[in-house]
Design a protein around this nucleic acid. Structure first.
Lengths: 218, 218
DNA sequence: ACGTAACCTGACCGAGCGGTCCGCTTGCGA
DNA sequence: TCGCAAGCGGACCGCTCGGTCAGGTTACGT
C-alpha cells in the first residue's frame, strides 16, 4: 500500500504480509490505534522487525487498515444509491457507519489523530464523502430530509450517534440505535428550525484532515 | 480532595497545592488527560515529587479536576431550573455542556477511561444527572420535548453534539452549534418517530461508569 | 531563638513504546 | 543443484512515562 509498491513479493513475504494485515486489523479493532506493534507482530506470528519491513512506520500500517475500512463503507454507500427509498437508504447508510464504529475502535478514531496526512486515506475519505453527499442529495430531493443538510453533516452525525452511546460501552451495546434515530428525526423537515452555523465546506473538511494529520504525525 | 483530607496545611503547602491545581486544570484542558505530570509540575513551578505528595496518583489528580468541572456544570443546571422557559433552559443547559467540552479536553474525555472508580467523581456525576433529569422533566411536561427522552439522553446527546464537530477542531470551532441544534430538533415531538432502543437506566449508567473505571484504573 | 515535623526536590527506577540493525534463513531463477 | 538476494527476527537503542525516596529546607508552636 504505502511501502513495497507493486514489486512481486516472495511467497513467504506475501504470506506474512497477509497475516500482518489480518492481525493488525483485528488488534486495532479491539484496542484502537494505540495497540502496540509488538502485540500485533506476536498475534501475526512474525517478528517485530518484519512489521517495519512491510510498513515503514506505524502510521503507514494504520493508514492501510483505515483505507480498507473506508473503502468498504463507501461500497455499501454506492450500493444504496440504487435503493428504491432514498430516506431508508440514507438511514441504512448511517446505520452501517455507526455499526462499523461500534465494531472497530480503529475506525471510530478516524477523523481524529494519526494517518490523515496519508494521501491514500485522504482519497478514500473523499470518495466516502462523495457517496454520502449523493445519498443526502437523493433524500433531500424527495423531501424526507431538510434542505440544509449536506454529505459532511451525514458523516459527522454518524460519528455523533456512535459517540453518544460510547460511554455506555458494553453495558448497552446497541444503545447507539436510539441516538441514531433521535438524530435522524432531527434531520426531518417537520421539526426543522434554522441552524445557527453553516455546514462545513469540502475545503474545510480537507483542511481539518490536514491539520489533525500534521499534529498527529512525526 | 482525595489525599490530605481536611488536615490543616502549612502555608507553603497550601500555596503549592493551589498552584498545582491551577496548572493541572489548565494543562488537562489544553492537552487532555494524557498530559504528563512533569509538565504540570513545571507549569506550577514545583517539583514532580510534590505533585505526588498532594495526590497519590495521577488518577487522583484527574479526579479532583473532574469533580470541579462537573460541579460547575451542575451549578449552571440548577440555576436554569428557575428559568421561565423550560425549552430554552434545556437548550441552554446542553449548550453550556458542549461549550465546556469544547474549551476543556479533559472534560470531554469524562465518561471514558480513567477516574470513574473515584467515589467523589461518581457522586458529582450523579448530581449532574439528577439536574439533567429535572430539566428534561420540565421540558417534557411543557410538551416541547418528546415524552421518551430522559436525563441520561440529555447528557449523552450533549456529548454527541460536541463529538460530531470534534474532527473539524480548530477549522470551524463553533460548528458544534449546528449539530446541537440538529439534535435538539430531533428531541421535539413534531418529528418524533418511535425509538428502537430504550433509554439507559440510572443503574446501567452507574454500571458503565464502574466498568470504564475498572478498565482504566490499576 | 530553637527544635521538630512537615514539606520540597530532582535524581532515580522499571516498564513500555516506536523504530533500527545485523547475522541468519530461505525461496527461487538458472 | 546451487548461489544469492530477498526476507526474517529479536536483541538493542533512545525516549517518555508514572511513581519512589533519601536528604536538604522551611514554616511554625513554644
Amino acid at each position: 500500500m504505502t511501502t513495497t509498491p507493486p514489486g512481486r513479493l516472495r511467497a513467504d513475504a506475501a504470506h506474512n504480509r497477509r497475516a500482518l494485515l489480518d492481525a493488525a486489523a483485528a488488534t486495532f479493532a479491539e484496542q484502537g490505534m494505540d495497540a502496540s506493534i509488538a502485540q500485533i507482530a506476536a498475534r501475526a506470528g512474525i517478528g517485530k522487525g518484519t512489521v517495519f519491513r512491510h510498513f515503514a512506520t506505524k502510521s503507514h500500517l494504520v493508514a492501510a487498515i483505515l483505507c480498507d475500512r473506508l473503502a468498504a463503507f463507501t461500497a455499501v454507500g454506492t450500493g444504496l444509491l440504487d435503493a428504491a427509498d432514498p430516506e431508508a437508504a440514507l438511514l441504512e447508510f448511517m446505520t452501517t457507519g455507526v455499526e462499523m464504529q461500534a465494531r472497530d475502535r480503529c475506525f471510530c478514531e478516524a477523523g481524529t489523530g494519526i494517518a490523515h496526512s496519508d494521501p491514500e486515506v485522504r482519497a478514500a475519505g473523499d470518495r466516502l464523502l462523495d457517496t454520502a453527499e449523493a445519498l443526502a442529495d437523493r433524500a433531500r430531493r424527495q423531501g424526507s430530509v431538510r434542505a440544509d443538510i449536506t454529505g459532511e453533516d451525514i458523516m459527522l452525525l454518524s460519528r455523533a450517534a456512535y459517540q453518544a452511546a460510547a460511554p455506555m460501552g458494553d453495558v448497552a451495546p446497541d444503545l447507539w440505535r436510539r441516538y441514531l434515530h433521535v438524530i435522524f428525526d432531527g434531520l426531518r423537515p417537520e421539526a426543522a428550525h434554522p441552524l445557527p452555523h453553516p455546514a462545513p465546506t469540502g475545503a474545510e473538511f480537507a483542511a481539518a484532515m490536514d491539520e489533525s494529520g500534521a499534529s498527529g504525525g512525526p
